[in-house]
């Protein structure tokens, strides 16, 4: 009795969730812009022309390269620096550790919009606007990532550290040789969060990169869809498809870690 109602509900809501994805893919394959709302039945109306068009006629290849370089660098930086800080806060008793932990929690609560203006002024003063430095350096650490790693390392077995100490390893070697390699699940979870956030990030790149050669994908896609709006819907959708693929692939591969970590950190936070 109840089962079919449940499945109906789930299937209906899934359709609502999936429709925009399916429609985007469909629109990106329609050759003629004017036919997009008419669902042409002839197979000859479909093709990859929009993808060829967007790749050759816009800077999308450059934006892709920028986004990949910026996002990967930021992700690697976060993995290293947040883990170092998280380990230090979790495992070492040192003067100032409590204050540092509370400051980390505090800045997690600050809305990023407060940072937009000062970071823009700082970057403009340093002459870093339209450079990779501006797009990367401020984002190399993340208080949320530090918190995530701290929560992981708090439950890290003490015995491993003690036996390493007996073997004559100092703290820093213990971190790099023992703690960090064993933190793989937390690192993967963090990597995906940081990757997705920064891949999709719009407000900061939109003010820090003003030349088309320095745009990241969200900024570039925004320019295509909003300024060239009347020119081609289908080409814009091809751009959206290209932009969305990496996050979805990332998510599909690691979704086990992604969802379980959002649960763990969410509840504890």
């Amino acid at each position: 009795m109840k089962r079919p109602v449940f499945y109906m509900l789930l299937i209906l809501t899934s359709l609502v969730m999936l429709l925009p994805f399916v429609w985007t893919l469909y629109a990106s394959l329609v050759k003629n812009d004017m036919l997009v709302n008419h669902f042409p039945t002839s197979i000859s109306e479909y093709g990859f022309e929009n993808f060829m068009y967007i790749i050759t006629q816009s800077h999308i290849a450059t934006w892709y390269k920028n986004s990949l370089f910026v996002t990967i660098t930021i992700t690697v930086g976060n993995l290293l620096f947040n883990s170092m800080a998280g380990y230090s806060l979790a495992r070492i008793k040192f003067p100032g550790s409590k204050i540092l932990f509370f400051v980390t929690l505090g800045i997690m609560m600050v809305p990023i919009q407060i940072l937009l203006i000062p970071i823009f002024i700082m970057m403009a003063t340093a002459g870093w606007i339209n450079t990779y430095l501006a797009l990367i350096i401020p984002f190399l650490v993340n208080p949320f990532g530090v918190f995530l790693m701290r929560q992981f390392f708090v439950t890290f077995p003490k015995e491993l550290e003690e036996s390493a100490k007996v073997d004559g390893l100092n703290r820093i070697s213990i971190f790099f040789r023992i703690a960090l390699p064993l933190a793989k699940p937390a690192l993967i979870a963090q990597a995906i969060f940081i990757f997705v956030w920064n891949w999709n990030s719009f407000p900061f790149p939109s003010i820090l990169a003003t030349e088309p050669e320095m745009y990241t994908l969200p900024v570039g896609i925004y320019q295509i869809t909003n300024t060239a709006y009347t020119s081609s819907i289908t080409a814009s959708m091809a751009g959206v498809v290209l932009m969305t693929i990496p996050t979805i692939v990332f998510f599909m591969i690691f979704q086990k870690y992604f969802i379980s970590s959002s649960i763990g950190s969410g509840i504890k936070g």
């Binding site: 969730m17 429609w23 999709n200 719009f202 969200p218 979704q255």
Partner: peptide, 20 residues
């Protein structure tokens, strides 16, 4: 997974698609 997909998709892309 299906419910989670929109959350990881770029808001800029979502906005553009919805507009069309």
């Amino acid at each position: 997974t299906v419910y989670y997909l929109p959350y990881i998709t770029s808001p800029i892309a979502v906005g553009a698609v919805m507009v069309y």
